[in-house]
Design a protein around this nucleic acid. Structure first.
Lengths: 184, 184
DNA sequence: CCTACCGATCGGTAGG
DNA sequence: CCTACCGATCGGTAGG
């Protein structure tokens, strides 16, 4: 038995039953251990949740940093961000579901760290939308509201995993958001 | 004390702590009763969840039925659906949060009823998108995928409540989706 | 990695 | 609407 197997099994359970309703006994059964044996690999249920949420957060943060170094125009940056969200969602759908819906069950100090990463990510994302508007490429009314609309779509991409082809989903989101932002 | 007060208090708790992590003791404290006294007004925790989720589901179903009787063109129907989602989200934000994220904790038979209503709603929604494409008004690649994108945005509207003005949010979503679907 | 176990908390009931 | 209480289940530990 290894730690990664346990974390992945937990992500699946947290996704389907929610963090609070998942017991350590559920998790033990899924990986074929006695409940107490889990604690040879992990320190607490909280620690598992934190690891899942933070791994996702760091992937988005890294992806954003790489993208910023490429000096793309705003449209290329948005395309790259869509690709980033779709790639991560299709690579770790359960983790992304937990990252989206269960992060609030982390303990207070982890939520603080988590929110800092998220705020920085959102700032970078909004900067791209703002730059696009300033250059006359994008057209929208309110930056904060349009950002929330776009993020809502990107955050729910994991729901398409196992149902629709990844390239098809990315193409559709791309087409949709490109037209939605287009300044005609 | 009355039943409605208890249900509303529960919606607020279920939104912020999640259904599973909310105890009947939490709920009792919030409405100023001893835990056991709650059971003079409701039969179980499950019953509260069911009532919140089903009330929302019926509101969407009713809204859709009214809208279908108006014989609008597809663009007017989409506008009306956006208004329906924004109106309900701004009227009962906590209930909508529970409807979106906690419905899976209902018992099996209620989930069956819930999913039937949802499937019918989705069918009606997709019919409008299909009709718009057939008439050359809308442009998108895949019906199912574009529907998921639109619904993701509409389902998360409750996150704007208390942060952004309702009319502004409705206008932005309208502008965004209209352009995204436009056949140019 | 297992057996055995702990204190805390859960949803809910009995009875007035 | 309250006091008193129940069996079940929870996350986690001791000790080997």
């Amino acid at each position: 038995m290894n730690r990664t197997t346990i974390i992945n099994a937990a992500a699946g359970l947290f996704e389907s039953k929610g963090y609070s309703a998942t017991s350590m006994r559920d998790l033990a059964e899924k990986v074929g251990l006695m409940p107490s044996s889990l604690y040879s690999h992990i320190n607490s249920k909280q620690e598992i949740l934190k690891e899942i949420c933070m791994q996702c957060a760091y992937q988005f943060t890294e992806g954003m940093l790489e993208l910023k170094q490429n000096n793309n125009n705003p449209q290329q940056s948005i395309d790259a961000l869509i690709k980033l969200h779709v790639d991560i969602a299709y690579s770790f759908p359960s983790s992304i579901a937990v990252f989206n819906d269960e992060w609030r069950f982390m303990e207070a100090k982890d939520i603080t760290t988590f929110k800092k990463l998220r705020t920085q990510y959102e700032k970078n994302f909004k900067d791209i939308l703002q730059e696009g508007k300033d250059k006359g490429i994008f057209n929208y009314i309110d930056l904060d509201v349009v950002f929330l609309i776009i993020l809502s779509t990107l955050n729910r991409t994991y729901q398409s995993v196992g149902k629709y082809n990844k390239n098809k989903v990315e193409a559709e989101i791309n087409h949709f958001i490109k037209n939605a932002l287009k300044n005609t």
